[in-house]
Amino acid sequence: MLEACHVSVSYGATRALCDVSLRLAPGASVALMGASGSGKSSLLHCLAGVILPDEGSVVVDGIDVTNLSDRERSRLRLERMGVVFQFGDLVPELTLIENVMLPLQLLGRRTREARRRAAELLGLLGIADLGDSRTGAVSGGQAQRAAVARAMVHEPKIVLADEPTGALDSINGEAVLDALVEMTKSSGTTLLVVTHDNVVASHLDTLVTMHDGAILSTQMDTSV
């Protein structure tokens, strides 16, 4: 489903990733942990097609993204992936529901259908009545939930999250993670969460630990 094969990335003289290989099966739920500088964000960016590795390849849903142009990777991201980042970064001028609708509209769906589906997701996440508010008028937790909704509204095969609850208190963080895990599990979406928080990692089935640009260990939950 999503695979990095012998990927190496350097920023100038710094080696961020060193011959890293990782394979995510469809429907897998993976936590990527490591200290700052361990390379976990770089690995995430490679998997998302944001940066091209200096060596190695990244395969998304059978397609080798390392050969695609920037525009094609962008399109692939739109079609197959959803992303949630630490600060959500919703467009502040748009309402929450307009933010959530965006991926569907970009994919060419009709506005009415997009709005309906977006409202459905906002409902699942418990913020249905905030659809017409702007980010400035809602709390951080609510905005982050909208970001999660945006990541899932177009039914992507893969959801990538980078410290999605980093800016939230524990209760809100727990709620957002629960929503993320539940929604991806029920739809069979692969979920990869980059985090340094043990509690966050414990929400997911598999734990991959990184250190100094390489994968240190992979721990699968055998009961699953």
């Binding site: 043990n198 509690v199 990692a201 414990s202 929400h203 089935d205 721990q219 939950d221 009961s223």
Partner: peptide, 8 residues
Amino acid sequence: LERMRELQ
């Protein structure tokens, strides 16, 4: 960690 997953 295994125990934490169970607890979750």
